[in-house]
Each structure stands twice: as C-alpha cells, then as structure tokens.
C-alpha cells in the first residue's frame, strides 16, 4: 500500500459518511478498506452507520 492510500480516522470517517450519499471510487474504497482492517474504532463507526440505516428502514416500515 502506498503512502497516499493511508488514511487517518478523520479521513476514513469522512469517506464512510460520503459513501452514504454517493458511490466511492476504487481508490477511496481501497484506502478505506485498508484502514478498516487495521482500525477497530472506525470499524465500530462503520457498523454504527450501517445500523442507523437499518433502523431507519425499520422505522419507515412502521415500527
């Protein structure tokens, strides 16, 4: 992995949030997945964003 692809948590969180609004490009996805493999905090954050989405869909279904 080259140095440019290394993200800090701030950049990783930014990409995770962006991913909810638009598809990430290959470079962004690659950098993000490397970061998530190594960082359990951002992994937590990622799972939580997924959960927010699931919860909203449940809510919309009349929960």
């Amino acid at each position: 992995m080259d140095a440019e692809a290394k993200l800090n948590c701030r950049a990783a969180a930014r990409l995770l949030l962006l991913a909810a609004e638009r598809p990430l490009d290959a470079g962004e996805l690659n950098a993000l997945s490397h970061h998530l493999d190594a960082c359990f905090l951002c992994k937590n954050f990622s799972l939580q964003l997924d959960f927010l989405h699931r919860a909203s869909v449940f809510y919309a279904a009349g929960q």
Binding site: N8, C9, A11, A13, F40, N44, F45, L47, Q48
Partner: peptide, 12 residues
C-alpha cells in the same frame, strides 16, 4: 489535530 477520534466510537 492528528486525525484521531476525540471520543472513540464504542462497540455497540
């Protein structure tokens, strides 16, 4: 400033 979480996301 170094891009680390100020309040780290906990595992839910």
């Amino acid at each position: 400033e170094s891009g680390h979480w100020r309040s780290p996301p906990q595992a839910w």
